[in-house]
Design a protein around this nucleic acid. Structure first.
Lengths: 282, 282
DNA sequence: TTTAAATGTCGGATTTTGTCGGATTTTATA
DNA sequence: TATAAAATCCGACAAAATCCGACATTTAAA
């Protein structure tokens, strides 16, 4: 994104990228860019530490720091260690262009050469790493990836997984779905619910939610079949021929969409095993 | 505080202060300072509006904007309206000195004359950057990513999320939308509002806002379907087939764009769960 | 002042959801 | 292997919820 802004704005030539502060040091010393764009928060060696190491190695280029301001002491420290400007998250094109232009003007740089780092975009949720995810969170995250978190059956699916995960004996195979749905129904607070009836309602809700997942993933796959979510979920959670059939329908209405077969058992089984796996691994 | 930093650092002569955007205009036009330090968020007339008015009055000085960054569109707008630099809250001495020095160098100003405004200092406790994000801020950030922060229904969406988040029992499933919209309508200050009518107006505003989001994301996706915002939001918040359909329309006008189905329920459900998740995780 | 765009109003169109019985598939047993 | 029982999936329908579109009104821009 940042690289794109720079290129499209003709603000300079991007000569390199690095994945971390540590990794950037030798690159920067080798390439000697005029300007380094650097993230404040990075794994292993943060932005300021990276700058200090580079200064020790006698690097003379300018630094522009990318950050989401969290701490005024850090800002001060960054400036004291030679940062010329900050670019703030979320990144704004006009700000990037303005800052880079000013840097170029100030230091009379012509073909500004930049080393940048982008991977901070992926590391952002640092806080989640420090807390164990609940079953609910794990399941919701998976459903979110499939784009079905808003479906009315999602809640039932989450509860079903909670029921399974709360069993003292960790099974591999699911119990009969009817029993599972009844256990979910029994879990509801309301004592007036007819367990049998509610169980049938849960069954239908889950079925419809899984249909929504099929449609969503098929739509995704028909735009870009290398989409990560499509690639991961479509073949694992579903009978892939159903997804494929739906994709064909989306791309060409000759194909009848109304006959998609829903394999609830498979979906719930795979979801359960993945939830179990993720829960154990944290 | 800002005044103190300027004086102690011998960064210029503070020639005046004003209590609001409106009040500053005549002062600034009278005094014609070289540099105006101005808050982005002010009562009555905000920083950008103040700048625009001053430009209309042919004011030629430079602007440095003081702000807590919340919105990249606003940042962009500020730069486009002639802001040279941002100073970020909480105010850091080194940053102030650095920015003012750069401004002076850039414009060859000697006895920089500044008009400043301090009263925002009293509204904003210095530690705000380490404060928990409000529900509003979380929601606005998400809406911002979708490019719909200026849409008329955004405010309603924020209020709806606040209503939900303020419930003592944290639900997973939304209440009936009609009830939710009525709760939002009831939350308005004006006692004369017809709740039923306002609720219907809220419904339509939200609907139109979601349509705008679909169009934005479809535009993004048709340019680059690996765009991070597109990849994240399009399949999760919307029926992806609708996004896909709109993308096809954008790329080829043979496809009718007028029949996009708006799934408000899904949008609000996903937004709620994401807001809840982010709120809990901070 | 006029025109176009944005927003509100309101009744109706369409979809969603729960219910329930049956169709189909899978499993176990003779 | 055939059959019966169990399990899973399915579809139709009515009530409730949600979505929709046309037109009126308001607002903003020319």
């Amino acid at each position: 994104m940042l690289k794109k802004i720079i290129m499209e704005g003709e603000l300079g030539v991007v000569i390199g990228e690095a994945e971390s502060g540590v990794a950037s040091i030798t690159s920067i010393l080798d390439m000697q860019p005029d300007v380094v764009l650097i993230d404040l928060l990075m794994p292993e060696l943060d932005g300021i530490e990276t700058i200090m190491k580079l200064r020790k190695e006698d690097f003379q280029g300018q630094f522009i720091m990318i950050s989401q301001i969290v701490n005024k002491e850090m800002v001060g420290e960054a400036y004291e260690n030679g940062v010329e400007f900050f670019i703030h998250k979320p990144i704004n094109r006009v700000e990037v262009q303005s800052i880079l232009r000013k840097t170029a003007e100030q230091f009379r740089l012509k073909d500004s050469l930049l080393a940048i780092r982008e991977s901070l975009e992926n590391i952002n949720p640092g806080k989640t790493m420090q807390r164990k995810q609940s079953v609910k969170e794990i399941v919701l995250s998976i459903l979110n990836d499939m784009g079905i978190i808003g479906e009315v059956g999602s809640d039932d699916i989450v509860k079903a997984m909670e029921v399974l995960m709360n069993e003292s004996e960790r099974r591999t195979q699911l119990p009969p779905l009817k029993d599972l749905y009844e256990a979910v129904a029994a879990k509801l607070d309301s004592p007036k619910v007819d367990i049998k009836k509610e169980s049938k309602a849960i069954e239908q809700r889950i079925r419809r939610t899984i249909l929504a997942a099929i449609n969503n993933l098929a739509s995704l796959g028909s735009i870009d079949n290398t989409n990560p979510e499509f690639e991961y979920y479509a073949p694992r959670y579903f009978d892939f021929q159903e997804i494929r059939h739906q994709m064909l329908h989306i791309q060409d209405s000759k194909f009848d969409s109304l006959k998609v077969k829903i394999n609830s058992k498979k979906f719930l089984q795979v979801l359960y095993l993945e939830t179990l796996d993720k829960y154990k691994k944290q």
